[in-house]
Design a protein around this nucleic acid. Structure first.
Lengths: 358, 358
DNA sequence: GGCGCTTTCCAAAACGTTTTGGAAGACAAT
DNA sequence: ATTGTCTTCCAAAACGTTTTGGAAAGCGCC
């Protein structure tokens, strides 16, 4: 197509000058620059990304590897994150590469291929784990990355996260205030950082209220997982009056389990989640939940990864955001009829709770 | 890192020979090839993709542009498609590039940037429309693509689709057989091809049964859309006894609307969807739906796009697959207690109904 | 010993960009 | 006139691969 060479010969300039004119170097005359820019636009010139990557040694490509089981990927949170990250990256002329790999051997093989094959320049890591092989590897290789969620490591690293500990603490307090005494926690696998934090928030609130934090079960953060755990917990001799679920998907499973036993969710039993996925507004009753405004987070994640690529200081890239609580019918906290949606929460409170320096 | 040059000098061979040895040309001695392969593995050689792309003129990159509204992307179907397509492409050393753009100006700008900037070699197009600008553009440019869904065009094009017309026809027949007479259709916008087909299937069955196909409403294929339409339709003087929704998300909204009016879904009113998203199993009652096994479709889509890149004949790349019906509680067709899941349907009937030659 | 045929290898060009290390010219100061 | 300083431009190398068009060596055959 239109190469730098064509452009140059058409203008009667050297290819060097054209290149530098377009890149805004000071060493080309103003008149020349304008002439070049005009011609470039007229001829529809677009630099060849392959050539640029080859010469520069880096391509503007960010990889997003979904830690997903073979064919299952139904995480509304990640979906939304994906598109917002993609939009933001595209705005800065960067490409988003999407891959999927189940945690474990396959997953690391993907990272190796991408890093060693120079296919990606930076990574976005989601669903972080306490001990996270991915993070250790990228750190060792010196490849920039940003995490959605935290991990256990001595070195500083860039991340953005919701304050799950605080969010679940305050939720639990609310339930306690409403008279609940036996509150169960349906957890996601605690090797996932977010699960441990949410669990800790619940536990802290329970202990502060002198209540036994003894009903904890753990399963995959899916409808199926929540469904199974709820059944198990509701079987116990001293049935809890509230089920705090680590995620909305689990809560939706739990609601179904409770209903199958003839319990009226919202009055007989309170059930809550986290994420505010669209389905949460359409359960019966609507699901009490909390959220980290995904769109803003996605854009921020993209900006952070771009900052990392630009060599920004790591310590400016750690953010913990407050969660927006959305009490709804499933915890009996609202008497509203019909569907309770909170699209406006997207625009709601969104501030950095803590700029942590690790 | 390890370049071809390093490898060559280390082996005492020319860079040409090393390249050809690794590419399996006949003109290198067996002994040499083995020596080269061994050294390549030992030194961890990986061809630099940028260099390769530059020289070859094509990069192994497939773009997937999600036609999504600003920050909203909650289509479980696309999510699942994404990961399976990604996996399959990765298996063949291809990259999947993800972008998002709302239909209209922005969307076409993305296509222009990708095509003219040589950032993508092929496209996967989803949520096809009757008149589809994307398809017209790619055809004009001669860029390979594969559609998930059909479009109206004289020229042949590669696509894979579920037989929505037949699926909704047979669903409607089933409902009629169960005694329903006033059956409403809650449609997605009919400029989307799939919506028109599903609508047509319902209409054909209604007419064949001498029933009035007069309750049709149209909205976005979201929970919110289904919710609004259901309310509107249930308001009418002669309330329907069944609501056939174009998608599961709409059906979930409709279920909520019916429940809000005190109707018992499954007995007072039947509600059905399409897609078999995970939430469909956890509604109350479980949602009657049908599905196109997404994993298989995703892999097939990837294979087709690879075939297109390999120059395969278009006419071998048109497939319409039969849908798997899953009757569940929301249409009163099953008396099963509890959650009805059909994960096994993934492995179920899956055959090409018709290999169409356009 | 000249010719042709195989087999095995390689030098060099090319892809389109960025960047290095000047060169040429204008102008001012000496 | 020489020297120095700016400003503006450019030739050429480099990034790492693939591919073209041979070359060299070995062998058989007349």
């Amino acid at each position: 197509m239109t190469s730098l060479r064509k452009l140059a010969s058409h203008l009667g300039l050297s290819i060097t000058t054209v290149s530098r004119a377009l890149d805004g170097y000071a060493d080309v005359a103003v008149a020349t620059r304008e002439r070049v820019e005009q011609a470039a636009k007229a001829m529809g010139y677009r630099p060849n990304p392959a050539a640029r990557r080859l010469r520069r040694g880096v391509g503007e490509t960010v990889a997003f590897v979904l830690p997903t089981d073979p064919g299952h990927f139904h995480e509304p949170v990640f979906s939304e994150l994906l598109v917002t990250v993609g939009e933001e990256l595209a705005r800065h002329e960067h490409d988003l590469m999407l891959l999927a790999a189940r945690p474990g051997k396959d997953e690391m093989a993907v990272y190796h291929r991408l890093v060693e094959g120079r296919r990606a320049d930076a990574f976005i890591i989601v669903r972080t784990r306490h001990q996270d092989e991915r993070i250790a590897y990228l750190m060792a290789k010196g490849v920039p990355f940003v995490c959605h969620g935290r991990t256990d490591t001595a070195e500083p690293y860039a991340f953005i996260d919701g304050d799950g500990e605080e969010g679940f603490h305050s939720l639990t307090q609310r339930l306690v205030a409403r008279g609940h005494r036996r509150i169960a926690f349906l957890s996601a696998p605690t090797h996932l950082t977010f699960a441990g934090l949410r669990l800790a928030g619940w536990r802290r609130a329970m202990q502060a209220a002198d209540l036994a934090a003894d009903i904890v079960e753990e399963a995959e953060p899916t409808e199926e997982g929540g469904f199974a755990l709820a059944h198990r917990v509701l079987d116990s001799h001293a049935r809890p009056t509230a089920l705090i679920c680590a995620t909305d998907r689990m809560a939706i499973g739990a609601i179904r389990a409770a209903a199958d036993r003839g319990l009226t969710v919202g009055s007989d039993i309170a059930i809550t989640g986290h994420d505010n996925i669209p389905a949460a507004s359409y359960c019966q009753p609507s699901l009490t939940t909390m959220e980290l405004p995904t769109r803003l987070i996605g854009a921020r994640l993209a900006d952070m990864v771009l900052a990392r690529l630009g060599g920004a200081d790591l310590r400016d890239l750690t953010e913990i955001h407050g969660l927006v609580q959305m009490p709804r019918g499933s915890s009996g906290e609202t008497n509203l009829e019909g569907v309770v949606r909170t699209a406006d929460a997207q625009e709601a409170v969104f501030e950095v709770t803590e700029g942590r320096k690790t």
